[in-house]
Simulated assay, not measured.
Amino acid sequence: MKQSMILLHGLFGGLSNWKGVIQHFESRYDIHIPLLPIFDQHKEDNLSYLVHSLEKYIQQHQLEKPVIIGNSLGGHVAVLFTHRHPDKVSQLVLTGSSGLYENNSMGSYPKRGNYEYIRERVAYTFHDPAIATDALVEEVFKITRDRVKCLRIVQNAKSANRNYVAPLLPEITTPTLLIWGDDDRITPLEVAREFASLLPQAQLVILPACGHAPMMERPEEFNRILEEFLGK
């Protein structure tokens, strides 16, 4: 029976962000990419709602001790879930995770209908702006044209700022891999080092010339590092 792997996207991310990971690991892992219900209407704190949705997903799919990999907001959700359910996660992988500090001006104030601004902010996510393809920019632009979705983005960004995880991290003994780009301008390298210092079983690997989404920008290196960690 294959080991389960859950991939969690960020605030403006999507399923396509994990293409390289899926291609590399799908023959050996039972891969799940739940779409985080960022745009749902509810009365809970937004991060708590996302964690509850992950709890339900794992229960519905009867996943036992999956590997959980989260980017940006998805990493934040993964941290909170792992802290609540340490017995339900075999290994934790964080890349560009929020929870300590996040410089996300687009999350705080997404300018609706301004295509060039959106292109600039998407490019800012990467070390190499060429990664911000027209298709990727269009995907984010569609979100920002929707008034309700914009409101949900702002609410989730504020919830992420409120849910400061530093006090929780020393209590998470799950083996954890941190893969960080040295040119991450959203969650800078200092954030990765703070995660590494607070998590009891953390390994930090820094990728040069890489931004906020290493699995997209440096997929081969990301997969190699992940492979080594999973094999331990």
Rank of each mutant, 00 (worst) to 15 (best):
M1D: 12
K2M: 06
K2H: 11
I6F: 03
L7D: 05
H9K: 08
G13W: 00
L15S: 13
N17P: 03
W18C: 11
K19C: 08
V21M: 09
V21Q: 04
H24I: 03
E26H: 08
S27A: 13
L35Y: 11
P37L: 09
F39K: 01
Q41L: 06
H52W: 12
L54K: 06
E55G: 06
K56E: 14
I58A: 00
Q60W: 08
L63G: 11
K65E: 12
P66Y: 09
G70S: 04
N71H: 11
S72K: 04
V77G: 02
A78F: 09
V79Q: 05
F81K: 07
F81I: 11
F81E: 08
L92D: 07
T95W: 03
G96C: 11
L100R: 10
Y101A: 13
E102T: 15
M106A: 13
M106Q: 05
G107L: 03
S108W: 07
Y109E: 11
R112K: 15
N114P: 00
I118M: 10
V122E: 05
A123M: 06
A123E: 07
T125F: 08
T125A: 10
T133A: 10
T133R: 10
A135G: 05
E139G: 13
E139W: 15
V140P: 08
F141R: 13
F141H: 10
F141W: 11
K142I: 10
T144C: 14
T144G: 08
T144P: 01
V148G: 06
K149G: 09
L151I: 11
V154P: 02
S159L: 02
N161Q: 09
N163H: 11
N163F: 11
Y164Q: 06
V165M: 07
A166W: 04
P167L: 10
P167T: 06
L168Y: 02
L169K: 03
L169A: 01
P170N: 03
T174Q: 07
L178F: 02
W180I: 04
G181E: 03
D183E: 15
D184L: 03
R185I: 09
I186V: 12
P188V: 00
E190L: 05
R193Y: 02
A196W: 01
L198C: 07
Q201F: 03
A202Q: 04
A202Y: 04
A202N: 05
Q203W: 00
Q203K: 07
Q203P: 02
V205D: 05
L207F: 15
A209C: 04
H212M: 03
A213I: 08
A213D: 01
M216C: 08
M216R: 02
E221H: 06
R224H: 10
R224D: 09
R224N: 08
K232C: 06
